[in-house]
Design a protein around this nucleic acid. Structure first.
Length: 498
RNA sequence: GGGCCGUUAGCUCAGUCGGUAGAGCAGUGGAUUUUUAAUCCAUUGGUCGAAGGUUCGAAUCCUUCACGGCCCA
């Protein structure tokens, strides 16, 4: 990439001049300072100690981090140093430092935002704040750009997303969001590992994009001169592994869908998919319920999740009802008969203002009605089951009613969080459903699936009875961090070019 | 894709009816040895998102565009 003409201003020019002076005196970017403790450990270990206790202990510490503030009181100053664990106050006195250092270096050459190392003795100020009385200070990295205003921080959403590093420097709550994200994923990994699931990695570049109905990103492999797609789901590969005998597998990784952006959609997003042989969709509902309840307890210390002014109870047994039941439940004016006849259902959809394509069968029309009239009302954790076969090309048909599949989706706060089902392991049925998808693709539905002959061949070797599920990690993190936009839980959300 | 809102100093924001561009923080100079949004005095800093238009005169009114936010599809 060519060097961009950066925005320069007087503040940056001043700092560059300071850096020039620092360079002239020696190593400007030293990497020989080693801290022996971080701020959070100091507060944990000494935060409750009195000044007298600290004085008698005589604790010397070495810390390093970013100087977030500086209050010069004359011959003494206070600074806050921020590291990965928190902040610690530095008490900087002219007479505790080498001749000239305080006036010429600390006050003149250093700026808020610089990365520094500090050594000194722990004490408490008269207001009771744990601090370090510094007798050694070292500039480790000169910062050339000023930080946002200290009180309001960075509030401009665009800048927070585009320059996440600034957001992270300035916002404890943003740092927390991403720490929680990591903890959640950690919890999920531990949970699945304990149940003998094996974490695997399957291709992100696929010759045939499968496992979901979504528009893929396309790319090209030069050496092989072949078209490749970024995966929209890992599903078909994970089930190949179950055929191979890895009877419990999972993957937490990125999927890519070439669709619009919104507060709930980013072109790349993180999905947990897991597959368990000799289990059905009911087992996975039980597992999901247990896992999410445990996750809430672990992350929030409570099974109640507060999200955007609403609260959702993960402690009670999750509601379970079928697609049809949920439509009827939320819409007393709709009769069951209207949902069971294609013409009546179409008329109902029309009256609801739902645009329908002529190719839609009854199942697809039902789902459109469900999405319009019921989905957004599913506030507390709810499993919706019995999805029509027409919209579930990879799911096993119900033994009682082949019109629907042994499938569920999971909703909280009116949003879909997870999708799971007993897997279709009848190779001939799968081949037939792929053929249907291909017909839809040829009829113009560019989200319809391709025919994956190798996947059918794998099924012909025998996929044990299996259930599988996908959980949208980003949406789950939004819920647990009270974040209104998916961009708030992605470190680097997709943005248009500046 | 549609609707609404936003874009002014490094950051957070004012800017009245169209009449010379403002504050706080940060910066710079000074005072200050326990402050914590430190305080006090002085002071630098602007292509008002971009381009066009209306007007004697545009940050302000109009048009188009860019980027962002929210809502809808």
């Amino acid at each position: 990439m060519s060097e961009q003409i950066q925005d320069e201003n007087k503040l940056i020019a001043q700092r560059r001049e300071k850096l020039t002076q620092i360079r002239e005196r020696g190593v400007a970017f030293p990497n020989d300072f080693r801290r022996n403790v971080v701020a959070g450990e100091l507060h944990a270990e000494y935060g409750e100690k009195s000044q007298e206790e600290l004085e008698s202990l005589g604790v010397r510490v070495r810390v390093a981090g970013r100087m977030m503030s500086r209050r010069v009181m004359g011959k003494a100053s206070f600074s806050h140093l921020q590291d990965m664990s928190g902040k610690i106050q530095l008490f900087v006195q002219r007479d505790s430092l080498p001749e000239g250092f305080y006036n010429e270096i600390y006050k003149k050459e250093w700026d808020v935002g610089d990365i520094i190392g500090a050594e000194g003795q722990l004490f408490k100020t008269k207001t009771g704040e744990l601090s370090i009385r510094c007798d050694e200070l070292k500039l480790l990295t000169k910062s050339l750009r000023p930080l946002p205003e200290k009180f309001h921080g960075l509030t401009d959403q665009e800048q927070r997303y585009r320059q996440r590093y600034l957001d992270l420097i300035m916002s404890e709550s943003s740092r927390d969001t991403f720490r929680v994200r990591t903890q959640m994923i950690q919890f999920i990994r531990n949970y699945l590992n304990k149940k003998d699931f094996m974490e695997v990695e399957t291709p992100m570049m696929q010759a045939i994009p499968g496992g979901a109905t979504a528009r893929p990103f396309m790319t090209h492999h030069n050496a092989l001169d072949m078209q490749l797609f970024l995966r929209v789901a890992p599903e078909l590969y994970l089930k190949r592994l179950v055929v191979g005998g890895f009877e419990r597998v999972y993957e937490i990784n990125r999927n890519f869908r070439n669709e619009g952006l919104s507060t709930r959609h980013n072109p790349e997003f993180t999905m947990l998919e897991f597959y368990q042989a000799y289990a059905d969709y009911r087992d996975l509902m039980d597992l999901t319920e247990e896992m999410l309840r445990g996750l809430a307890q672990e992350i929030q210390g409570s099974t109640t999740i507060n999200y955007q002014g609403e609260s959702y109870d993960f402690g009670q047994p999750f509601v379970r009802m079928t697609v049809k039941e949920s439509i009827l439940h939320f819409n007393p004016e709709i009769s069951e008969a209207q949902l069971e006849d294609l013409e009546l259902a179409r008329a109902l959809a029309d009256s609801l203002g739902i645009p329908l394509k002529p190719t839609y069968g009854l199942g697809k029309v039902q789902i459109e009605i469900f999405e319009k009239t019921a989905e957004h009302r599913l506030m507390n954790p709810t499993f919706i089951t019995a999805y029509p076969t027409e919209v579930s090309p990879l799911a096993r048909r119900s033994d009682e009613d082949p019109f629907v599949t042994d499938r569920f989706e999971f909703f909280v706060g009116g949003r879909e969080i997870a999708n799971g089902f007993s897997e279709l392991n009848d190779a001939e049925d799968q081949a037939e459903r792929f053929r249907m998808q291909v017909e839809e693709k040829e009829a113009g539905d560019d989200e319809a699936m391709h025919f994956d002959a190798d996947y059918v061949r794998a099924l012909e070797h025998g996929l044990p009875p299996t259930a599988g599920e996908g959980i949208g990690i980003d949406r789950l993190v939004m819920l647990f961090t009270d974040s209104p936009s998916i961009r708030d839980v992605l470190l680097f959300p997709h943005m248009r070019a500046e």
